[in-house]
């Protein structure tokens, strides 16, 4: 079963300098019980994608085309505020990037965890018992006493564990993790990744894991999606993407990962050129201005070429990219 099925989603933002197309024809699937990674540079549309799924686009943002099917039935694009609120925090939960600011500073952790359960009809005692159980699962020591404490009394790593506990409190079927380890140091990052992996198995939910850290994606995810300038340029199993990347951007992105360099380089590799202006998108392929394979055909929109049942790249030249691994 597919938990989240995004089909040809386009999102525009109205800005003073004109319309900015933040997402163009984005399609992706998150199957049940799978961890799907989303990787891309800053500004590639990762956050817009999450906000569109959560129904939390800024006031000037608008879904112009496409569908977001959740659990096979509800199209989140057309769901009203009440219907969306009933899903958020209950069926779709989110862990955000910045653990320092993600919790309300003047309310106790216990109060915030109780408030998330406001639809459950449980008594205060039952709610607290569930919170304690969840905090124990994320390995917060002495959870009974820590419920009464406030966010500033916890360390950054602990706050992120609490955020994860809050997200999983209602046993959602989809957990969206928006760069949950970016603000943490490397040792904590590993611990949080292990914890997420562990809890995902226990609870049996799917995870949409957003990161710009290729190593973390490789470690954690079953499938992955590569985004560039508001488009999904390639998607497939993590194995496919890492060992047989077919979109020129994916190839270059992997080549830039310092962890994958074979020997010491005096200068780290970069991708020449800059992101296209999203207010004035190029016709056709978004990557053409930085691509060595670009030719005349690239000025028309490339098709989503299926390379295997699950491996898709949005490129005209997938024949030429085969084999030559980065």
């Amino acid at each position: 079963m597919t938990v989240l099925d995004v089909k040809d989603l386009s999102v525009d933002f109205a800005t003073e300098a004109g319309t900015l197309q933040a997402l163009r024809k984005v399609s992706l699937k998150v199957p049940a019980n799978r961890i799907v990674g989303v990787v891309g540079e800053s500004g590639c549309g990762k956050s817009t994608l999450i906000n569109a799924v959560l129904g939390l686009l800024a006031d000037n943002g608008r879904v112009t085309a496409g569908q977001i099917l959740f659990e096979g039935k509800s199209d989140l694009v057309h769901l009203d505020g009440t219907g969306m609120r009933a899903l958020r925090g209950q069926r779709i939960a989110t862990v955000f990037q910045d653990p320092m600011g993600a919790l309300n500073p003047v309310l106790s952790v216990g109060k915030q965890m109780r408030d998330i359960q406001y639809r459950s009809g449980r008594s205060r005692k039952e709610k607290d018992a569930l919170s304690v159980e969840m905090l124990r699962k994320v390995r917060i020591p002495d959870p009974e006493h820590r419920l009464a404490q406030f966010p500033h009394e916890f360390s950054g790593g602990m706050k992120q564990r609490i955020a994860i506990a809050m997200a999983l409190l209602m046993r959602p079927s989809l957990l969206i993790a928006d760069e949950p380890t970016t603000a943490l140091d490397a040792t904590l990052e590993v611990a949080i990744i292990e914890l997420l992996k562990d809890l995902q198995k226990q609870i049996g939910c799917s995870v949409l894991f957003i990161s710009h850290h290729l190593g973390v994606i490789a470690e954690l995810c079953d499938e992955m999606i590569v985004m560039y300038a508001g488009e999904v340029v390639e998607r497939g199993s993590t194995r496919d993407i890492f060992h047989n990347p077919r979109h020129p951007y994916t190839k270059k992105l992997l080549a830039c990962d310092p962890a994958r360099l074979a020997r010491r380089e005096p200068r780290l590799p970069t991708i020449p050129g800059t992101l296209p202006d999203l207010r004035n998108r190029p016709k056709g392929c978004v990557f053409q201005s930085r691509c060595e394979l670009a030719d005349d055909v690239c000025s028309t929109m490339p098709p989503d070429t299926a390379l295997s049942t699950s491996h898709v790249a949005r490129c005209w030249h997938t024949d030429e990219t085969a084999g030559a691994a980065a």
């Binding site: 958020r88 939960a93 408030d115 998330i116």
Partner: peptide, 23 residues
């Protein structure tokens, strides 16, 4: 960002405004 978290957890606008933000 904690207000975004509260929204992402499906709390009502009323509760977010008068309990989470006004405090």
């Amino acid at each position: 960002s904690h207000i975004r978290t509260a929204r992402a957890f499906g709390l009502t606008d009323r509760r977010i405004t008068y309990s989470y933000a006004l405090r």
